[in-house]
């Protein structure tokens, strides 16, 4: 399991294609949002921009981890190895969490600067929301990226599959972030954090159990 994760990160470090293109994409989404709301930016707009940038870049990033396995039919190589397919899922999901965390470290500070919001006192809670959002999103996209790279029209299919499913996660993450970037209290976001945590648990478990059926020949 760790071997797969290490291999993916090694390739990523070597090519740096993934993270760098995702970072630029994230930045562009924030810019577009600025063009749309040139007046006094609100925390709500900041939260929306933050998560839109994350989702857009994240969907493309998740696709990459499996496109990597498509070249030379490497996925078959993994499947012929004596390991539980669920382990491949965990490795791929963790790889996505790592890459998306790097993305968040870039996008969140940029959002704070561009939208002139100051979450200083609630930075810890914002980190929790970002992390939980990241894990749940990675779980769903990892499962469906493995599917989308194996069918036609894969560029269109992944967002089509993933976006409806992650809608509860997006609602929760945007609502929680908007409050944390504005002047909401930690108590106000606790219910959203519960939704995010439930989402993470359900979809990590679903991916763990169902991945076998996706990669099996």
């Amino acid at each position: 399991m760790l071997a797969i994760l290490a291999k993916d990160l090694r390739i990523e470090l070597r090519t740096r294609e993934g993270v760098s293109s995702l970072a630029v994409l994230g930045l562009l989404v924030l810019l577009v949002f600025q063009f749309a709301f040139p007046e006094r930016p609100t925390p709500e707009a900041a939260a929306a921009a933050l998560w839109l940038a994350f989702v857009l870049a994240g969907t493309i990033g998740a696709q990459r981890t499996f496109l990597l396995e498509r070249e030379n039919a490497c996925m078959h190589g993994l499947v012929t190895a004596p390991l539980d397919p669920a382990m491949i899922f965990v490795a791929k999901m963790l790889g996505n969490v790592v890459i998306l965390t790097v993305l968040q470290f870039l996008v969140v500070p940029l959002t704070v600067v561009f939208f002139d919001v100051a979450p200083t006192s609630r930075l810890g809670w914002l980190a929790v929301v970002c992390f939980l959002g990241n894990v749940g999103f990675s779980a769903v996209t990892t499962l469906f990226a493995a599917i989308s790279v194996r069918i036609r029209a894969r560029e269109v299919m992944l967002p089509l599959l993933v976006l409806p499913l992650v809608s509860p996660l997006l609602i929760a993450a945007v609502q929680a972030s908007a409050r944390l970037l504005g002047d909401g209290s930690a108590a106000e976001v606790s219910v959203w954090i519960q939704v995010l945590a439930a989402f993470d648990v359900i979809f990590a478990a679903a991916g763990w159990l169902l991945f076998e059926y996706v990669v099996r020949e």
Binding site: P168, L169, I171, Q175, V195, A198, I202
Partner: peptide, 8 residues
């Protein structure tokens, strides 16, 4: 999850 989140 969708039900809970849209209600909230």
């Amino acid at each position: 999850l969708i039900m809970i989140s849209v209600r909230l």
